[in-house]
């Protein structure tokens, strides 16, 4: 970690700024990919991503994504791919937590995470491991909305039921949401909760991601806040 930090401190400011806007673009792609950047996500982007960072504003980023401009995404992923393995892994962790923002990972988010894992030379095995740690559930196969078979299965399992109340800012966390924020199951013991808390606070410590700029820090801080809130709730029950 200290190596990464000192390397970046020595680097010209513009290079650091470039990495920051690349990370911002890639993280927003995860959130916006399901086409409907819904209000809570927009609010999240607007309040968490400072609007003037280098030359890239949040609006620019969203326009890029809506246009389907793959050239900027390519530049961004190539830039992040040049960083240390430690930093690339920290980025993947942020992308995973971004995909979990509405608690159910969308098909598009699933494909994007797979793409990031390959493009950053981390591989699907590492993605599966990190996803399990961060979300508490296994990384699934992406769904197939071009197949009626899949649609029948989805409607019989009620998978698409709207969980709109989940991300409401200001709403109090339920026990279920707290378990999701800590990535633990229903049967988790107190000691499992404590060890999940310890793991996740280390993963989303803002010091681990600060080299990647303000957007990265914002995402880490938001998850960190949820982890703290969750553990308080679960310790009292």
């Amino acid at each position: 970690m200290s190596i990464v930090n000192s390397k970046l401190k020595g680097a010209p400011q513009s290079q650091k700024e470039q990495l920051a806007s690349c990370v911002k673009l890639l993280l927003l792609w995860v959130a916006a990919s399901d086409g409907t950047l819904d209000e809570s996500e927009l609010e999240f982007a607007a309040s968490h991503f400072p609007d003037s960072m280098g030359t890239t504003t949040t609006d620019d980023v969203l326009a890029t994504i809506r246009k389907g401009d793959s050239k900027s995404i390519e530049t961004a992923i190539r830039t992040v791919a040049q960083e240390s393995r430690e930093l690339r892994t920290a980025f993947l962790d942020l992308a995973i937590t971004m995909s979990m923002a509405d608690r159910r990972i969308a098909i598009t988010e699933n494909h994007i995470l797979r793409f990031y894992a390959d493009a950053l030379y981390l591989g699907i095995e590492l993605l599966e491991k990190r996803f399990q740690t961060i979300s508490g559930s296994a990384f699934s196969q992406p769904g197939d909305p071009s197949s009626m078979l899949w649609w029948d299965q989805v409607s019989s399992e009620g998978l698409l039921e709207n969980s709109a109340n989940d991300g409401q800012p200001g709403a109090r966390m339920t026990i279920e949401q707290a378990r999701a924020a800590l990535g633990v199951g229903l049967s988790a013991t107190q000691s499992e909760i404590e060890s999940a808390y310890e793991n996740l606070t280390a993963i989303f410590h803002s010091g681990r991601v600060e080299a990647m700029g303000e957007a990265a820090v914002a995402v880490a801080k938001e998850r960190f806040r949820r982890i703290e809130e969750a553990v308080k709730l679960l310790r009292n029950t």
Partner: peptide, 8 residues
Amino acid sequence: LYDSTHST
């Protein structure tokens, strides 16, 4: 849902 997956 199909369209957003398609373009991604």
